[in-house]
Amino acid sequence: MTTPMVKFDNVTKRYGSLTVLDSLNLEIAANEKVAIIGPSGSGKTTVLRMLMTLERINDGVIHVDGEPMTHMERNGALVPADERHLRRVRGNIGMVFQHFNLFPHMSALKNCMEAPIHVLGMPRREAEERAAELLDMVGLGDKKNHYPSQLSGGQQQRVAIARALAMRPKVMLFDEVTSALDPELVGEVLQVIRKLAKEHSLTMLMVTHQMGFAREFADRVCFFHSGKIAEQGAPDKIFNDPQEERTRQFLSAVLEAG
């Protein structure tokens, strides 16, 4: 196997005395699409937040593209990464949030231009062209100059996807991106993600409650339970023939709820 794009190596995360993730080991290959499912409180969102460096880890190492992200080498030993190192490795990763987190004081277009100009140092003209292209791709070419407050939840979330893509990440993280949406708006966002998976070579990690979508979209499904991966495998296997009792219980509960 070639170098994995993302590798969690014995990663532990604690909040005080509560262990949210217990020595997690997980490798994700380049271009792989992974869906993370599990009951709330199972630590699934924490996986994404640690990878985005929004949470510090207590133990273990996270590697991105063959390079330690949370740590760096100094005099042959691994030491916790400094801000500069974090920023360099973080450039590989983009994230879409449950609550969109668009910048409310900027139009859709400006939302997608801000980081390319000021972080990547892209010329304004180029950044604008690219932002417009991405907004076209998510089907919002005609809403470029709208402010977030003038867009529906589904449209805001599509802008957020375009904004993350504008940084040309190798890994995209989707954190329950449809959970805050009205049911009739979920489809348009999933449609965009589907398209993304098909047309771009991106490694994608998705925490989701949409079992149907996870099944169709993912190469692999990881079922989290109490801070550990209880079971993982191809979607067909997980959904049709779960080996673990906990997985069976969870799936029957979720599917019953519809």
């Binding site: 985005m52 929004l54 980081a115 993350a164 940084m167």
Partner: peptide, 11 residues
């Protein structure tokens, strides 16, 4: 979330 989005965009 605004800080988090800024981190995610590597600012």
């Amino acid at each position: 979330g605004q800080w988090e989005a800024s981190v995610a965009l590597n600012m």
